[in-house]
Amino acid sequence: MSTTEHSEHSEYIDSETGKMGMWLFLFTEIFLFGGLFIVYSVMRAKYGEDFHHGALELNAFIGATNTVVLLVSSMTAAMSLTAIQKNQPKVAIALIFSTLLLAGVFMINKYFEYGHKFDLHLYPGSEVMRNLPKGEIMFFGLYFLMTGLHLFHVVVGGVLLTIVMLRVKSGKINSEHFLLLENGALYWHLVDLIWIFLFPLLYLIT
C-alpha cells in the first residue's frame, strides 16, 4: 500500500468514510433515473392503452434473460468481495472476471434487441415512429432513453470493475484494503437494481 498514490492521504480515508461517499453517490444516481421514472409515470397515466401496445412489441424473453444475467453478475461481484476478505485474490479475480463476462452477455443481448428495433424502424425520429399513436412514440422514446442510460451505466460499471480487477492482480487491493472493490461492487448492484425496476416497467406491464 505504501507505494500507491493514496498513501499521502491514506490516514484520512477509512473504509466507513469511503463507503458512505459511495452510498451518497448512489443516491444521486437513483435521483438521476428518478427524473425519467417521473416522465414514465406521467406518460403512462396519460397513454395507458398505447403503453400496453408498446410493451407487447418488446421481447420479454431477452429482457428476462438479461435480468437473470445481471442478477447472477451481482452475485459474483458480491462473492468476489468475500473472496478478497478471505485473502483469496485469485478467486476474487476469477469472480470479477465472470461479472465482466456477464456484463458482456448483457450488452450482446441488448445489441440484438436494439438491432431488431432498428430493423423495424422503431427509433426516435424515424418515419415509422412518427406515424404511431402518440403514446407509443412516448413509450419507445422512454424505452430507448431509459435502457440507453442504463446501458451507459453498465459500461461505466464494467470499466470500474476492470480497474478493480487489475488492482487486485497487482496487490493494491488485498485482504486489508478492499474499499475500491467494495465500492465497485456497490456500483454494480446499483446497475442491477435499476434494471430490476426497468424490466417490469417496460417489458412486463402490458
Binding site: 444521486t28 427524473g35 426516435p124 412516448m138
Partner: peptide, 21 residues
C-alpha cells in the same frame, strides 16, 4: 441536482433524437 441533470439531458435528446417528451 441529479433531477435537473436528467432534465437537461432530456432536452438534449429532444434536440438530437426528437424524442418528443
Amino acid at each position: 441536482t441529479p433531477v435537473v441533470g436528467i432534465t437537461l439531458l432530456m432536452v438534449v435528446a429532444e434536440r438530437t433524437l426528437h424524442v418528443g417528451f
